[in-house]
Amino acid sequence: MSASETRKKVTSAQTAERLKEEETAGSLSDAADVYYLTKDNAAFHKTEGQMLAVTIMEETHSAVYVHSSFPHTNKHMFLSVRTLENREIGMIRSLDDFSEDTQQLLKEQLHIRYFTPEIRKVISVKEEFGYSYWEAETSAGLCRFTVRGGGSHAKLVTPDRLLVTDVDGNRFVIQDISKLTDKEFRMVEMCMYG
């Protein structure tokens, strides 16, 4: 078992323990009034119009959106299922609470909502006058984009994961900056502090 897998398991166990404590603590849990969706009370399906729909207790919501509570640190835990009007229908504690097919469907929806191509190779980063001009090979193909300096437009969201937001609001991510080559790191490093 790899170190990261072990860590994940430990984290899940800790979360479950904490939740249990919270439940027993009572008041906070009651006050939060979270309605959890599981395979027993909710059925998800995709509509013909490529939208996600969910049926809960015989009531069908024809278009819902899946929001992740921790899109960078734990994308598949504590998902919020919401309507377009931003009303929460319920929360999913973990994708593991659903069948393989539903998991796949929900992952797909998360992928659509959080479109963040992964930077696989940094080709060049040129900085000039408050902007940096990037060229990178990403999971969505070759991308050239401009990032504004200052204001944390390239920031570490975890100790390893760098989120880069360009001037239009497009997001790119470097999953693990420690895996960059020295040359790539030197180029990227400048923008992290800009």
Binding site: T47, E48, G49, Q50, M51, S62, A63, I112, F115, D166, D168, G169, N170
Partner: peptide, 10 residues
């Protein structure tokens, strides 16, 4: 019902 027509970057 509702449907997605097209998608774009920002």
């Amino acid at each position: 019902g509702k449907r997605v027509l097209v998608r774009s970057t920002m």
